[in-house]
Design a protein around this nucleic acid. Structure first.
Length: 303
DNA sequence: AATGGTCAAGTCAGC
DNA sequence: GCTGACTTGACCATT
């Protein structure tokens, strides 16, 4: 089991999410920005390595406008050496890596233009992981998409579109339940139809479910990850008190997280903490998990 | 140098 | 019909 956090580290003064306005695009500006982003990504990974946080989500902003027609700079070739070096660091230290395209990536969009732009973004995200030389355990997670007035048809469309994808993308793509439209059950059904692994978000599940206990879904979820996909990834968060339902917490609530660990005790999973103070909460979670592990080892093997 | 409005892209819910 | 939310952050024009 590895524990991690997404995209941003608040302890070091370095972000891999530098961007700029579309109107400011030049090849030179892109080169400068990506140079800075890759340098920061490496620093963040070094911090994570030193602190035992071995699950990390790479920001989609790493190469700004990478999937936009304006981007003609050959960043893949220009930064091939840097990507390879970072990839070696990742592999050498046993990191698990994910990426998460944002809300504009919709495989099941009825609009062909939206679909094509989504493909372009998935190509970009998989290229980043490919350039790092990462195997199929490094995943790109998306949601099922919109409902467009007919959930049944929209799920059918997802399954159809998925089968059209290039193998390079299929090797990395996983689907995640969301807090309003598609449940873990829906994702598992799409797995049955397409073979796509399912990444569960425990917080979204708490907000959108058909009465299933999260712990009871762990085994069906695990079965969607084949050997080369690695162990299942799970996103974890909790409700920020006093805010809109679904708002991610600012800080981890350790009591809740310990309960979550207890429920998932027997499942070997990598846990991503979607908590706003990022590595700060991840470190507390890691300490809690290590406490738990010590408790577990006291249980006799044949008990 | 500080700040607040704005930023490539889509969809849905709630007003 | 508009606004805010999504993994919320970072840019940049204006002061």
């Amino acid at each position: 089991m590895r524990i991690g956090y997404p995209c941003i580290n608040r302890s070091i003064h370095c972000t891999a999410s530098h961007t700029f306005r579309l109107a400011s695009y030049t090849g030179e500006r892109l080169r400068e920005t990506v140079t800075a982003n890759l340098a920061c990504l490496e620093k963040i990974l070094r911090y994570n390595h030193e602190h035992g946080l071995l699950f990390f989500r790479i920001t989609s902003d790493l190469v700004p406008f990478a999937s936009h027609p304006i981007c003609t700079f050959p960043w893949q070739e220009h930064f091939a050496g840097e990507f390879r070096r970072i990839g070696e660091f990742i592999r050498k230290n046993g990191f698990r890596i994910s990426m998460h395209p944002d809300q504009f990536v919709l495989l099941n969009a009825p609009d062909e233009g939206v679909f094509q732009r989504s493909i372009a973004d998935l190509v970009y995200q998989t290229q980043v992981l490919d350039l790092m030389g990462l195997d199929a355990t490094a995943k790109v997670q998306i949601h099922v998409g919109g409902v467009y007035g007919d959930k049944r048809l929209s799920m059918d469309r997802f399954a159809e579109k998925y089968t059209l994808l290039d193998e390079v993308i299929k090797n990395r793509l996983v689907i995640e339940n969301d807090e309003r439209l598609y449940t873990i059950r829906d994702c598992l059904e799409l797995h049955d139809r397409t073979g796509i692994p399912v990444i569960a978000d425990s917080f979204h599940h708490a907000l959108n479910n058909k009465g299933e206990r999260f712990a009871d879904l762990l085994e069906p979820l695990r079965e969607t990850w084949k050997g080369r996909d690695g162990i299942p990834m799970v996103d974890y968060s909790s409700q920020e008190p006093g805010k809109r339902v679904g708002a991610h917490a600012e800080h981890i609530v350790l009591e809740d997280f310990r309960q979550f660990l207890k429920e998932t005790l027997l499942a070997d999973i990598d846990i991503m903490l979607e908590i706003k103070d990022k590595e700060k909460s991840a470190l507390l979670a890691l300490a809690a998990a290590r406490d738990d592990a010590r408790l577990i080892t006291r249980i006799p093997a044949h008990a």
